[in-house]
Amino acid sequence: MIKTEYASVNNWLIDSPSGSIIHVITGEKKRLGEYQLKMLEVLFENRGVILSREELTALVWEGRVIGNNSLPNAIHALRIALEDNGKQQRIIKTIPKKGYLLEAEYCRYFEENVQEDRENDQENEHERSEETMTAEKTAADRFQENDHSTVPPSAEASLSIACAEPEHCFPVPTSVTSDTRSVVWRKRFVLLVLVFICVACWWYFSIPRANQLRVVEVENGVYSNIQLHEVWQTREMQQRTGTLRNTLRNTFNNLNQQLRISSSRMQVYYSATDLTLNYTLYITNSCNQRQLSMAIRQWRSEPQQLNTLVLRETRRIINEMATCPAP
């Protein structure tokens, strides 16, 4: 017997394949977003444990660039889906200056005996097969008995069987041409639809799009403790990000030395328009991780102020990180 376990929070089953949660009593189904469902799974796996904002961001979004409100919005949506009060916070609690906590008392597993149901289905199917075979055998025996009776030769050549005893007869179809044609055309239609879907998928994934968002690592190997990633959608944005890289070169050199001294590493994701620079960094060491996102206006007009701002804020994050104990 195989037992399948389903995780549930406040009587809501987590159904990952369908991207939804299902109420165990009413059967109500609620669709969740990709990252909302991923966050619920992460909170369930760490139920009863406080997870910081940085830990949740790393486990759910896995290094992707997100806005400052992405995490609070996802928590708010989960509370509504799980019928949790945002003020009382019975299920998902906000721990000030620490993070979030999923109460373990609302979490449980449900088991389903899959193998037993399959064995019952197989037994029922076997019984039905035996009944069908018995009925067919009985009909065949009756047909053979009638075949030895005095039937005119002309009747043997016909497509239908005439019997002296109607209750011993079973009809033979005189024509199956229309049914056969219907099945053939149905199969052809399904095959045509499948071919169309395959061609559409090939076109969608193979034809390049002019405005497709791209994330490209640049300056690979130039800095020992810094990884730079440009995010651009058009050639014009790519040219602006290249200009920004040259503008901040001295700042990156200074930060790389400080990161090397503190045994830390930094990943930077940035995209730029004529007016706004979106700049996000992740700094990690062996025991901690910090994130900073900035939207800098008029970044092209004052290069010196831009360097000062990036250097100051990054050093602040490095200095705020906890020092890891020696192994």
Rank of each mutant, 00 (worst) to 15 (best):
L259G: 01
Q258M: 07
P72N: 06
S271P: 01
S264M: 06
K30R: 13
D141C: 12
N211D: 13
S52L: 04
E145K: 11
N225W: 02
Q289R: 13
R64D: 10
F196H: 09
R290L: 08
L51M: 07
T308E: 14
E45V: 05
L244C: 04
P327Q: 08
P327H: 05
Y279L: 03
R188F: 10
N250H: 10
L277K: 00
I14C: 02
S160P: 02
H168V: 05
Y109I: 11
R265W: 10
W203N: 11
Q239I: 10
L59A: 08
E34W: 08
S8G: 06
Q144R: 15
S271N: 07
R90G: 05
I207E: 09
V310K: 01
D147S: 11
E167R: 09
I75S: 00
W202H: 12
G221K: 02
L59E: 08
R316H: 10
N285I: 02
M294D: 05
S149W: 09
W12P: 01
L102D: 00
V218C: 05
W185Q: 15
A164K: 12
L59F: 06
D179Y: 11
I50W: 05
A162I: 13
S20E: 06
R312G: 07
P171Y: 07
D274I: 03
E127Y: 10
S271F: 03
R260L: 10
I261Q: 14
Y282S: 06
C201G: 12
S264G: 06
L56Q: 02
R245V: 08
L192T: 14
G99Y: 03
T284Y: 04
Q89N: 06
A272V: 04
E123A: 15
L56I: 10
S264P: 02
S178W: 11
E165A: 09
V60K: 00
W299R: 01
Q89H: 05
N288L: 03
N120D: 09
R90W: 05
V60R: 00
E320K: 09
E127T: 11
Q88D: 14
V199L: 13
S293G: 11
A162W: 15
V193P: 01
S16T: 15
F110H: 14
E320C: 04
I318Q: 04
S175L: 04
Q122K: 15
E111W: 07
T174I: 13
Q88T: 12
Q304Y: 07
Y269C: 03
F189S: 11
T174L: 13
K93V: 07
L228H: 00
C107N: 02
E55R: 06
